[in-house]
């Protein structure tokens, strides 16, 4: 086989592999829709081809081909729109919505993954073309590891401490520790909450974390992830037991309340720790001069 053919082939394979590995990472963030998998693998294949073809095209040199490759890369912007649209459509029939911030975060991640695939395919084929084909065994795993690193953001567990809270009533006001959650009118609902409700306190570690948790989009993401794993006793027209996350306005920590199908506070805390911190909600107070000054 010609050298450029080997480079393209190996580039495509390693890029595709990269997409596949990252797709498996999606599992928890994004329910596995089988057809969605196929779509993303196919797009990942196209991205890998783009990246792999670029090196021989530049080396030849065929600058028209390179220009076309750049144009083709623009197509991947559509992926973000596609994901956003799908998730927004699904949102309308959800009892516990994901929230716009979470959807935007997922859509961005899906777009970014394809650029990482292009990068992996490009550098692998570059290494193969410039050096020898065995180099793929070093370059591809390293690039796949880097892609994984770049794609993994921080989690709520990194920015906050999660502790068990006590669910109790002050008259008709439901509270978790000292945070007011809501007013519950019916005595039988109160009894049910006392029997089955679980509460958790999420304490931010610094001012940035406090601002992240302050954002309703981040709270919706937490609620959605918990409910999608532990379940909820909310039904259509029965919204009394809605899971909620409310802020202690003076101290800035969150109280989370849920009546779950699987009332297991230990796993609830683990799930909350594993909720991604959304990039659109990330607090950056400590990056600014006055933010740092005011923090003490």
């Amino acid at each position: 086989m010609e050298k450029y053919q080997v480079a393209i082939l190996i580039g495509v394979i390693s890029g595709f592999l990269d997409r596949w590995v990252m797709l498996r990472n999606d599992y928890r963030h994004y329910p596995t829709y089988p057809h969605g998998h196929l779509t993303h693998l196919a797009l990942g294949f196209i991205a890998a081809s783009l990246g792999a073809v670029a090196v021989p095209a530049i080396a030849k040199p065929d600058y028209i081909a390179v220009t076309f490759l750049v144009l083709a890369a623009q197509q991947f912007r559509e992926i973000r729109n596609m994901e956003r649209e799908t998730l927004n459509k699904l949102e309308e029939t959800k009892l516990i919505p994901r929230g716009q911030d979470y959807i935007e975060g997922i859509a961005r991640v899906f777009e970014a993954r394809n650029y990482l695939v292009i990068m992996t395919a490009f550098f692998t084929s570059l290494a193969v073309y410039a050096w020898r084909w065995e180099s793929v065994f070093i370059v591809a795993p390293v690039l796949i590891l880097i892609s994984g690193k770049l794609m993994s953001g921080s989690y709520v567990g990194d920015i906050a401490d999660v502790e068990e809270g006590s669910v109790h009533f002050d008259g008709s006001i439901l509270k978790v520790n000292d945070v007011v959650i809501m007013n519950v009118g019916l005595p039988q609902t109160r009894e049910k909450i006392m029997r089955e409700g679980i509460g958790v306190i999420i304490k931010p570690k610094n001012d940035n974390a406090r601002l992240s948790l302050h954002n309703p989009g981040q709270r919706m993401a937490i609620i959605h992830d918990v409910v999608s794993i532990l379940g909820t006793k909310v039904d259509i027209n029965e919204t009394d037991l809605m899971p909620m996350a409310r802020k202690q306005v003076d101290k800035g920590y969150l109280a989370f309340f849920v009546v779950a199908n699987e009332p297991d506070v230990k796993f609830l805390m683990e799930i909350i720790k594993k909720v991604p911190v959304l990039e659109t909600t990330r607090g950056t107070a400590l990056n600014s001069f006055f933010g740092r000054k005011a923090a003490d």
């Binding site: 008259g171 008709s172 007013n183 519950v184 009118g185 019916l186 609902t189 259509i236 027209n237 029965e238 919204t239 009394d240 809605m242």
Partner: peptide, 10 residues
């Protein structure tokens, strides 16, 4: 509350 899809408050 069940018919109207609301929540009872006291």
């Amino acid at each position: 509350a069940r018919i109207l899809g609301g929540v009872v408050h006291d």
